[in-house]
């Protein structure tokens, strides 16, 4: 079984990488892009029995830094 975990910066936390990507997108001639924020996708292959609580615990203990990041768990 596969679970996808999306880790994103909290609102209000400055994202210099997102800004640089935005700048590069504009440099390629694309217009109409208002903002870019970069995050991280983590794919986990696991036994079907792994609980949502365990996945959440992995996120809060390691995969996301709760000071600056949020996470979303997407189970296939």
């Amino acid at each position: 079984m596969k679970t996808r975990i999306f880790v994103t910066l909290k609102n209000g936390v400055l994202d210099p990488q997102g800004k640089a990507i935005h700048h590069a997108i504009e440099g390629l001639g694309f217009s109409g892009v208002h903002d870019v924020r970069a995050g991280r996708l983590i794919e986990i292959e696991h036994e079907p029995g792994l609980s949502k609580a365990d996945l959440e615990s992995m996120c809060t203990k390691l995969l996301a830094n709760m000071v600056i990041e949020n996470f979303e768990i997407e189970q296939a």
């Binding site: 936390v13 400055l14 210099p16 990488q17 800004k19 000071v67 600056i68």
Partner: peptide, 11 residues
């Protein structure tokens, strides 16, 4: 320690 250390603002 509190807080976090993020990418430098100037990249």
């Amino acid at each position: 320690l509190p807080g976090a250390l993020m990418r430098n603002a100037g990249i």
